[in-house]
């Protein structure tokens, strides 16, 4: 099962991911169209002490937002592992418990429908739009084991270089 993973050091704050996310979730599927339609991105690039810091839903195994959702709108798909209210958004009562419960601040408000808005991992795409758009290869869509393997190799190289 693949996850959206990040290498913070490679992010330079260009926000291409946020634009691509909004475009993917718009009618027009274009960046300009998304702006005109008022579509909000579901990935966030915070500025922390001047350094860009991308944040996206971790699709937690035991997701606090799902636990907190009294209306049952927020659900975790047992097959794909995706946590989303897409498909059940009509149940959302706009209590924002999910926003308060998420430790990462990864849930937002859709001002058009007044329901919770978050990453749905682009169900129509093989690779999520944010990952595909990143010009710096700061975002990956891969199995966590593959990521961990690459991280082990990189860390090994670094330690060996230090000697």
């Amino acid at each position: 099962m693949k996850e959206i993973l990040l290498d913070y050091d490679k992010c330079n704050g260009c926000m291409a991911c946020a634009q691509a996310c909004a475009a993917e979730h718009s009618e027009s599927k274009t960046i300009v169209g998304a702006i005109l339609e008022g579509v909000r991105p579901r990935i966030f690039v915070q500025s922390v002490d001047g350094k860009p810091f991308p944040i996206i839903c971790r699709h937690c195994e035991d997701a606090p937002c799902v636990d907190a959702c009294m209306a049952g709108a927020m659900q975790k798909d047992p097959e794909t592992g995706v946590v989303t209210n897409e498909g059940h958004a009509e149940a959302c009562v706009g209590c924002w418990m999910c926003i308060m419960a998420c430790p990462y601040g990864a849930v937002d408000r859709d001002y058009r429908s007044n329901t919770a808005l978050k990453c749905d991992r682009c169900p129509e795409r093989e690779i999520p739009a944010c990952v595909a758009s990143c010009p710096n290869n700061a975002l990956f869509y891969t199995d966590v084991n593959v990521y961990a393997d690459a991280r082990r190799t990189a860390e090994g190289r670094r330690l060996l270089a230090i000697g």
Partner: peptide, 10 residues
């Protein structure tokens, strides 16, 4: 305006 785009900055 933060964060500002690294491509423009460089």
């Amino acid at each position: 305006q933060q964060p500002q785009c690294g491509f423009g900055m460089t």
